[in-house]
C-alpha cells in the first residue's frame, strides 16, 4: 500500500539515508529505535508532510509528490504525539476538523460529516465528551479524541507518533486496545512509532528497527525483536521472552551494556 523506496532526507542535525520500507494493506507496523533515530521524520515522509531529497514515497503505486495534499490526506491520517490547540475548541469541533481533506477551504460540514464524526467518537469511546472543551480532558481522553479526529478523516492508513508517550499505564492499554480493534475490525492499516517496546510487541505484526537514520532490521515482530536487536538499538542488555499471560514478547531491560551506548552514527564501532 505505502512504499518508501531508497528515501533520503536531511536535517541540519541528522539524516535518513536510503530507507526502504513497505507497509502492506491491513498491516500493523511498528517503528522503533532510540531518540533521534528518525522515527518522526519517517512518519512525516510517509504522510507527505515533507518530501524526500531522493527516493520516492508511493501510495498504491502513485508517488505522493504527484498527488495534491488533500488527496493524500483523504487516504493517510496522522496522529501527533501531543496536541495543544491555541484556542478552546470543543471535542466535536476537533473531530470535525478531520473532515477538512474532504471539504477544502470553503465547504462546510453537513449531516454526513457529522455522522462520520459521531461514529469516530463512538469508536474511540468518547461520544459522551462531544460537547466538552478539549482542553479540560484528561491525557487519555485527549489522545482518544485526537485518534477520533484521525478516524473522521476516513483514511485507510493511520500513522501514529508515540500516541501513548504521556499516558499512564491504564490509558496506554486503553489506547492500545483501541488501535488493535481498528486494525482487526476495520482493517485500518497502522504505522506506530514508539519507544515502548512492549507496546510494539503487543500490537505490531511487523517491526522496522531504525538507528541513526538507517533501517537496522525489518520483519515479523517475533523474529526481529531479540535481545541482540535491543542491545544494538539502545545499548541495553535486555531479557526478551514470550509472556504466556500477555500473549506476546516482553522486553525486560536488565542493565546497560558495559561501554558506550551505540551512537546515532551506525558506522561507529562499539567499545
Amino acid at each position: 500500500m505505502l512504499r518508501l523506496a531508497d528515501v533520503s532526507f536531511a536535517y541540519a542535525t541528522f539524516d535518513l539515508r536510503s530507507v526502504s520500507v513497505e507497509v502492506s494493506r491491513g498491516a500493523f507496523v511498528g517503528l522503533i529505535g532510540p531518540n533521534g533515530c528518525g522515527k518522526t521524520t519517517l512518519l512525516r515522509l510517509m504522510a507527505g508532510v515533507v518530501t524526500p531529497a531522493t527516493g520516492t514515497v508511493s501510495l498504491d503505486g502513485e508517488p505522493l509528490a504527484s498527488l495534491p495534499r488533500r488527496r493524500i490526506a483523504q487516504r493517510i491520517a496522522m496522529v501527533p504525539q501531543e496536541t495543544h490547540p491555541a484556542f478552546d475548541y470543543t471535542v466535536i469541533e476537533m473531530v470535525l476538523m478531520g473532515r477538512y481533506p474532504h471539504l477544502g477551504p470553503f465547504a462546510m460540514e453537513g449531516p454526513a460529516d457529522l455522522a462520520i464524526a459521531e461514529e469516530a467518537l463512538e469508536a474511540t469511546g468518547t461520544a459522551h465528551l462531544a460537547g466538552r472543551a478539549y482542553m479540560t480532558l484528561s491525557g487519555g481522553e485527549k489522545q482518544r479524541v485526537i485518534i477520533a479526529g484521525a478516524l473522521a478523516q476516513s483514511a485507510g492508513l493511520l500513522l501514529l507518533d508515540e500516541p501513548t508517550a504521556s499516558l499512564d499505564l491504564g490509558y496506554q492499554l486503553e489506547v492500545a486496545s483501541l488501535l488493535r480493534r481498528l486494525n482487526r475490525e476495520r482493517g485500518t492499516t497502522l504505522v506506530l512509532a514508539t519507544h515502548d517496546l512492549n507496546l510494539a510487541a503487543r500490537l505490531c505484526d511487523r517491526l522496522v528497527l531504525l538507528r541513526g537514520g538507517r533501517v537496522l532490521a525489518e520483519g515479523p515482530t517475533d523474529t526481529v525483536l531479540t535481545s541482540a536487536a535491543v542491545c544494538d538499538l539502545y545499548g541495553v542488555d535486555a531479557d526478551v521472552r514470550f509472556h504466556p499471560g500477555a500473549g506476546h514478547l516482553v522486553v525486560t531491560p536488565v542493565a546497560t551494556t558495559t561501554g558506550v551506548r551505540p551512537g546515532s552514527d551506525p558506522g561507529q564501532t562499539r567499545v
Binding site: A47, G48, V49, A73, I76, M78, P80, G98, Y100, Q153
Partner: peptide
Amino acid sequence: DAAAARGV
C-alpha cells in the same frame, strides 16, 4: 504538522 497532514 497535523494541519499539513490534513492537506493544508
